[in-house]
């Protein structure tokens, strides 16, 4: 196995093949800023596939479907490995879901989700370029305009 430049972990998850510039967005959308688990991460690491990439390792954590979907927003080509006793027990390619709820804001300032306490809901109408249609105002939010929403 290649030296990953980031220490191996005993139990937890590894999120690999994150675009180098998306590291902190992925950390933020998964709320990793607020947990006490041990986290190691690196960015601008060499990648044969992507040029450069970022990687995040979190001890004693697992990710459910909702959290895997969140990763897809900023790192649609990432892989997530679940580690037990230093071994990879499961490895998932991230998949961009059909629908997405919460976590990001609708880019339309006149949308009800920006005016009242309403959780955003989107239909993903382009999974390659990441275009999200708001379930409420029906306007489209593109990847460049994604803003993470707290709570």
């Amino acid at each position: 196995m290649k030296n990953l430049e980031v220490n191996a972990i005993e139990n937890g998850i590894v999120i690999d093949h994150i675009p180098a510039n998306a590291l902190f967005k992925v950390m933020r959308i998964l709320s990793l800023e607020n947990i006490t688990n041990r986290i190691t991460f690196g960015t601008n690491l060499p990648s044969s596939r992507m040029g450069t990439k970022a990687i995040i390792k979190v001890s004693n954590m697992s990710l459910d479907k909702a959290n895997l979907d969140k990763i897809a927003i900023f790192a649609p080509n990432a892989y997530v490995s679940h580690i037990q006793n230093y071994k990879v027990v499961a490895k998932h390619k991230i998949e961009v879901p059909d629908n997405f709820e919460g976590s990001i804001m609708c880019a339309n300032p006149m949308c009800v989700t920006n005016k009242e306490v309403v959780r955003t809901k989107f239909q993903i109408i382009n999974k390659v370029d990441l275009a999200f249609r708001s379930f409420y105002c029906e306007k489209i939010t593109m990847l460049d305009n994604f803003e993470i929403r707290e709570g």
Binding site: N108, M110, C111, T113, K115, E116, V118, Y136, E138, K139
Partner: peptide
Amino acid sequence: HPVEGAARY
């Protein structure tokens, strides 16, 4: 309603 998506909500 002037807010977009108000009726869906």
